[in-house]
Write a protein that binds this DNA or RNA. Sequence first.
DNA 1: TTTAGCTCCGGTAACGTTACCGGTAACGCT
DNA 2: AGCGTTACCGGTAACGTTACCGGAGCTAAA
Lengths: 349, 349
Amino acid sequence: MIGHMNKPPTIKDIAKQLNVSISTVSRAMRNAPDVNIETRKAVMALSEQLNYQPNRLALSLKQKQTHTIGVIVPNLDYVLATMVRGIDEVALEAGYTVMVCQSNESFGREIVNTRRLLDSLVDGFIISVSSETKVFDHFKKIQEKQMPIVLFDRVPADLKAPSVILDNMDGGYQATEHLLEQGYKRIAILAGPKNLGISNSRMEGYLNALKKYKVKPDPHLIIHCDFNQHYAYLATQELLNMKKRPDAIFTISDRMAIGAMLAIKEKGLKMPQDIGLVGFNNEPVVNLVTPGISSVEQPAFELGKMAAKLFIQTLHNNDDMSEVEEVLKPKLFIRESSQRMLPKNGRLR
Amino acid sequence: MIGHMNKPPTIKDIAKQLNVSISTVSRAMRNAPDVNIETRKAVMALSEQLNYQPNRLALSLKQKQTHTIGVIVPNLDYVLATMVRGIDEVALEAGYTVMVCQSNESFGREIVNTRRLLDSLVDGFIISVSSETKVFDHFKKIQEKQMPIVLFDRVPADLKAPSVILDNMDGGYQATEHLLEQGYKRIAILAGPKNLGISNSRMEGYLNALKKYKVKPDPHLIIHCDFNQHYAYLATQELLNMKKRPDAIFTISDRMAIGAMLAIKEKGLKMPQDIGLVGFNNEPVVNLVTPGISSVEQPAFELGKMAAKLFIQTLHNNDDMSEVEEVLKPKLFIRESSQRMLPKNGRLR
DNA sequence: TTTAGCTCCGGTAACGTTACCGGTAACGCT
DNA sequence: AGCGTTACCGGTAACGTTACCGGAGCTAAA
């Protein structure tokens, strides 16, 4: 008799009702050999009828893997949320579930999150590190436990792990080259804190482009400021008050570009005539402001997918993959803020 | 001797090394009574030294709860990401971990996510439903398993569960009243699909305000269109081409406001002189465009926190809470897009 | 002295699952 | 007849933890 029990049915219930052993049911359920076709059918039928769901907890305990990926990100802004979506996409496909934790750019919070995910809940980590983080003991602790880590987007040099990053140098190069080709001569860069890897790479691209075009970099035009809108605004004000002010600005994030734009407008300067502006990330917002801001796009979704793929590879391959580094290419989107010459091929954007 | 084993230490290892039973260690570890102070100290010391971490999996299996909350959201835009942060905040405090899944506004994806989280991984759900979703069997299945659900933000009427929502009617009222007080006479509303609860409530507020100010609503000024920028752009174009065009527009989201703004600018109309505009959500972007767009702010972070609190209450209280509905108040932020009279008290914004 | 009541501890079962080993038939072959 | 092989199946231990019960030893009251 099928009781009106409330608890979810287990393998044991099925075994009892079918008068077979739990071993048999277990085997039947996961298509293992050594089970009669009739028996299997019966098991399948009953499990269907009872709406049996295997208990993942018990399974995880037994085979010491949870099929869960811990994802730690500094925040969930447009770019990172998109990357997370990419991770999710691939993970789901491969039978993994992801747990997303935000560190809120806080070192302490990152540690808490790590600890929390660590105690037997996840099979490994996919991480983009907080900007505050300068030591990596909490991550090294993960590796000591033989758990794989894949890094993405913000990848510190001091931590050895397979990683997926954007070719930030190329992005900086593209942006700067574009400005040069538009005839801008004194190009300033608004970079982030000096310890931030992605910032330095983008600046390197900037310098390379200048060199290529034989423009001598002017240290007064290289500004390090905090990675946000307000500081970019202040920094731009200063830039515009110089005797020989820059005629273009490349900011290493769109947030900063917005800040710069506010200062530019306040000063009464016109883009792209008086001054050119290029940002980074190609967030939707750059399309909404007037003028639209040229920006370097990251393939965020792809990058997330790649990170998840790499993670699953790492999990399955046993060989050391800590040297693997996938590099994706950015793409410049040109808008009104920097387009002061007619494009050669006649089309805008 | 402390071996150089690689596996994480268990309660059993500690027991063996201390020559006590595992029961005793277990008791000592969780400050249960019936254990000598000396014994407890010894256990604590050794567990510290071995860096013992209790296995949450085993614990969960035993006591049938995972201390994990499944969060399903349609996407991770600014507002929802903020809400999720609020949930996270409270959950962490209470010893819970959250698993965030994006349904990408897709009904099918929502079902997949639900199934995935359901099989013994989470203790319950906090959900904001996808805009595509019109039947709720997958959620009812959760409730049949006695698992609690808390709904937030987008709450369908057909699903009985405790919920946290914004007072959308009040938001619509505030926005419309503000426009009326600014002297606008023909106020249009860009609403969402007719089956979307939040849209209808905001429109109700709009109608209430008109009534209060004795303005007869004009059906031509009430537009239902898809919840995104492009359709809002198209709808606004139509509005502006009417013989008697509206002199103000209230859109029920900022995305739509942006769309409207593009159409307005194209038409060569000036805000706030020729036409007023008010959005909803107070996303950062409304501050970045020119002119800044007035918008109704949701206390997103608070709302998330409230949802998590409610969830934990539901989990602990056994009594039926499905009637509970927390309602938070929105707040209008006035910017240039709708401010055509000097504020009475002389301050702007 | 007996009894009752502490304090402290150990053994065992259980949570739901799988891995492993062993066993029973039935069959076919020499 | 005896043997090996194959096709099935069951029992048991284990994963790491806690709940429950029972018991030893001691102290204090009757």
